[in-house]
């Protein structure tokens, strides 16, 4: 495998420094390509350890209202797959270490052409992908070619992935495992800490990959609690709500938008604590 190694290196670093990681999710091109670039350029300094960048899609079936709206804002502002990869390329020109994972749905990748996507994503400096609507049953489509090309394929494990199913879910996963802590869509319910601890423990019995936990995580306190048991916490909708709160009536970015989002990231990062021995 000829992967970038940035994801593995980042988790190794985190483990060494004895703390959990903060993974941020923002949609590429939201609310417009230039503001989106300013956000991306500031995330690592603000405290993001890994960056998930959403590939906007017209029909995000697993996402709640916040991410649906962000996807539509990005598309309306002209974002597309070429533009998304351009953002990553621009980011890599100055940051060689922060991992970038593209997250989204399969149709924009399929439409772009899977081979062409793999080549262009690797060249741009993408480290992995999360494709929500590609379960293990469809591995031949994209997961296996991506892994062969050296792009990590990060799988979602969910409360419905029981012990019988987990090995199948984890089999061709690489990079890390994204534990979806609630059966539901993004940005709505939050799971209880005990449930999350139990689920992460179960995952750890099945895999050596790092585990990041997401869905319903909004506060620094939650980030702190979760990184006691997991390797990283993912925050998406809460940041996107800040984007939405800083738009004018015409949907354009207000002056303080970038700073407001980056301040949120800094506040969330302050919630990171040491990983307990049990992790």
């Amino acid at each position: 495998m000829a992967g970038s190694g940035r994801i593995a290196a980042r988790f190794a670093e985190l483990r060494q420094s004895g703390r959990g990681g903060l993974v941020t999710f923002l949609t590429a091109g939201d609310p417009d390509p230039e503001t989106s670039w300013d956000l991306l350029a500031g995330l690592a300094n603000a405290g993001a350890d890994l960056i998930e960048l959403g590939m906007p899609f017209s029909d995000p079936m697993a996402d709640g209202p916040a991410i649906q709206a962000s996807s539509l804002r990005a598309l309306k502002a002209g974002m597309n797959m070429v533009g998304t990869l351009d953002l990553v390329r621009r980011f890599r020109a100055t940051d060689q270490t922060t991992p970038i994972v593209l997250m989204g749905y399969y149709n924009p990748i399929y439409s772009y052409g899977t081979d062409r996507f793999l080549a262009d994503a690797l060249e741009a400096g993408v480290d992995g992908t999360i494709v929500v609507d590609l379960p293990p049953e469809e591995d031949a489509e994209f997961c296996l070619p991506a892994s062969a090309a050296g792009l990590d394929f990060i799988r979602l494990a969910t409360p419905t992935s029981d012990d019988k199913r987990l090995p199948k879910v984890l089999k061709n996963s690489s990079g890390f495992v994204y534990y979806v802590s609630v059966a539901g869509i993004t940005g709505t319910k939050s799971a209880g800490q005990a449930d999350i601890a139990g689920a992460v423990g179960r995952l750890k019995r099945h895999t050596d990959l790092p585990v990041a936990v997401g869905f319903g995580i909004k506060t620094a306190a939650q980030v702190g609690e979760i990184t006691k048991v997991a390797d990283a916490a993912v925050v998406g909708s809460a940041l996107i709500n800040t984007v939405a709160a800083n738009l004018d009536e015409g949907g354009r970015a207000k002056n303080g938008l970038v700073q407001a989002v980056l301040d949120d990231v800094t506040a969330l990062a302050a919630g990171l604590t040491s990983i307990g021995e049990a992790g």
Partner: peptide, 20 residues
């Protein structure tokens, strides 16, 4: 067995739904 009609069909759903 996996629901394919030629290249069409399949089961392109989120993992949460797969067991169901």
């Amino acid at each position: 067995a996996d629901g394919h009609f030629g290249i069409h069909g399949g089961r392109f759903v989120a993992e949460t739904l797969m067991p169901l």
